[in-house]
Simulated assay, not measured.
Amino acid sequence: MLEPSGAGRSLMLVLHDIAPETWPDYQPFVQAVDEMGSVPMTWLVVPDFHHRNPLARSPTFCRLLERRLSRGDELALHGFYHADDGPTPRSLGEYFMRRVFTHEGEFYALDQAQALHRLEQGLALFARQGWPVAGFVAPAWLMSPGTRQALCQLPLRYTSTPQHLYRLPDFTAFDAPGLVWSARSAWRRGLSRVVCNWQCQRWHSAETLRLGLHPVDMRHRFSRDYWLRTLDELLLQGREPLTKSAWLERQVLA
């Protein structure tokens, strides 16, 4: 485990589940962030969200992502379907992770060959679009051993879990604590605010913080306003906004 380089405090604003279907949720938030000034974002792009949003059939949305790249944002690969369509779970623990904890852990049960195939499909789509890609984030941050093995065979520079960024291919871990909400119901949103406020205090001196946003957060003013307010507060504290790639590059060079 490596500590961050100490080159100055930073933050990373990360938008999960990016697809044509979720863009209307994000659009007002992204506009508000753009009005704050230069705040680069990492967009976690799903090539065919839930088997109904193939990017190849959404040229207008692809052009939007290209404009975000020109602004200094980053696109990363976020699964391929963002849906767990694997075989029926075979154990109680697997059932909990794949049917109770989440239905979207696409890479939780894949073997090495299956994971490699989907990763290569995603990277091929990025290549056809001419989009640079350095990172992969598994849906729900769930990766099977086979997925980890597959990542070591590809020209990717990083992956991540809720509290760490991992440099590839050696999986060197860097502390990068993340804030995330569960916003599907009012009680979850209320609890998420309490937990994240506590985490912000706990990690006040952390070298970096990641804000991990999801489309459902944007559908409720309560959670959307929290993220805008938190981002503004962290910027006022002097934290520098960076993409994941830019942050990792500083660690590698330090």
Rank of each mutant, 00 (worst) to 15 (best):
V195T: 11
H51K: 14
A254C: 12
A7C: 06
M41Y: 01
V216F: 15
D225E: 14
G79K: 06
M97H: 10
E66A: 12
D111G: 11
A183V: 07
R184M: 04
S91V: 09
V216L: 08
E249R: 15
G190D: 00
H78I: 05
G190C: 05
P4V: 09
T88W: 01
T60M: 01
T102V: 09
F107S: 10
L154V: 14
S245I: 03
A32P: 09
P139V: 12
L119Q: 06
Q199G: 00
V46F: 11
F101E: 02
A140E: 10
I18T: 05
W203M: 02
L211R: 10
G135W: 06
D111S: 04
D217M: 06
G122E: 05
S144G: 04
L228C: 07
R118H: 09
F80T: 10
S91F: 05
S205M: 03
L209V: 15
D85A: 08
Y108G: 02
P47A: 03
L231G: 09
G86P: 08
D232V: 14
R202K: 15
R68T: 07
Y226W: 15
F222H: 10
Q27V: 05
S5V: 09
S70R: 14
L248K: 05
Q149L: 13
E35T: 14
Q153R: 15
R250N: 05
H78T: 05
A183H: 01
E106H: 09
R157A: 15
R98S: 11
W187T: 01
P139L: 08
P87L: 00
V133T: 14
Q121S: 12
A246D: 13
L110Q: 06
L154F: 11
P40A: 14
L209K: 12
Q199P: 00
T147M: 14
A176Q: 05
V194K: 15
R9Q: 13
